[in-house]
Simulated scan of single mutants.
Amino acid sequence: MKNIVLFASGSGTNAENIILHFKKIRQANVVAVFCNNPKAKVLERAQKHHVTAVVFSKEDLKTEIFLQKLNEFQPDLIVLAGFLLQLPENIIQSYSNKIINIHPALLPKYGGKGMYGMNVHQSVLENKESETGITIHYVNEHYDEGKTIFQKNVGIKDCITAEEIAVKIHELEQQYFPEVIEKLITSNI
């Protein structure tokens, strides 16, 4: 059985969706949720599903002790599911091609530092894009520049607010993120 570790910073809807997906198909276990926000709703979601939650600070993330703690969970795959901090180089090197992220746009558009959540949707709206989507990609040392694994687009001509775009993106995330993770896990990454 493969081990998945999730990193999240906020509400955790994607994290919970992934936990539930793998409880159902049983090809992997979500063994921990790492969170940098002690007030994040994702911690409640992890507890509800009996998944270990690890809370840490931005400073903790950069230490060897943090990497040792992560190693204790023996992750076969690390999934960033709404995680807002950049991972340090020692983690990226230790888990090369075993860390993935989901981005709420069609990279390389609307990527980089500060481009997350509603910031992305507002930029897409302001630039009058006719479509947007999600990108699932490997994580490297640069924000949103790792190799693309999967993209799915959606038309947004009918959207007049960033919130309407967010709803469409969330639907794509909920449908495709667990499926892509499952394909990565079963292809013996």
Rank of each mutant, 00 (worst) to 15 (best):
T63H: 12
D60I: 11
S57W: 03
L43S: 07
H49P: 02
I19M: 15
H49M: 09
F66Y: 12
N14E: 11
V42I: 10
E16W: 01
K48F: 01
V30R: 08
P38R: 09
N29S: 14
N36E: 05
A15W: 04
I25K: 13
F66H: 07
V54T: 02
R26I: 00
H49D: 03
N29G: 03
K69R: 15
E44Q: 12
V31T: 14
K48R: 10
L20Y: 00
H49R: 14
I18E: 07
K23H: 13
L67Q: 13
E16S: 05
A32H: 08
K39E: 13
N36R: 10
L20E: 13
K24T: 10
A53W: 00
K58L: 04
L61R: 09
Q68N: 15
A28S: 10
V30E: 02
E44G: 05
E64F: 04
N29V: 00
N14W: 08
V30N: 03
H21K: 14
E59D: 15
T63A: 12
L20P: 01
S57K: 09
A40M: 09
A28Q: 07
N37K: 11
F22L: 10
L61V: 05
E44R: 06
T63M: 13
L67A: 08
H50I: 02
E64D: 15
I18W: 05
T52L: 03
K24D: 12
N14T: 13
A46W: 03
K41W: 01
R26L: 06
H21V: 00
I25Y: 06
V54Q: 13
P38G: 02
S57D: 07
A53R: 02
Q27L: 13
V54E: 11
V31R: 14
Q47P: 00
T63D: 11
E64A: 14
V31W: 05
E64I: 08
K39C: 04
K48H: 04
A28T: 03
L67G: 10
I18F: 05
T63F: 04
A53E: 12
K48T: 04
K58A: 15
E16Q: 15
V51M: 11
Q47F: 01
A28R: 07
I18Q: 05
H49L: 14
A53I: 00
A32P: 09
L20K: 15
K41Q: 12
K41M: 08
K23I: 06
E16F: 01
T63N: 13
A15G: 14
N14L: 06
V33I: 15
T63Y: 05
P38E: 12
V55G: 02
I19P: 07
T63R: 07
R26F: 00
Q27Y: 10
E44Y: 04
A15N: 03
K58I: 02
Q27A: 03
V42W: 04
E44P: 00
I65W: 02
F56N: 08
S57T: 15
A15H: 04
E64T: 13
Q27W: 00
E64P: 04
H21I: 00
H50L: 12
I19Q: 04
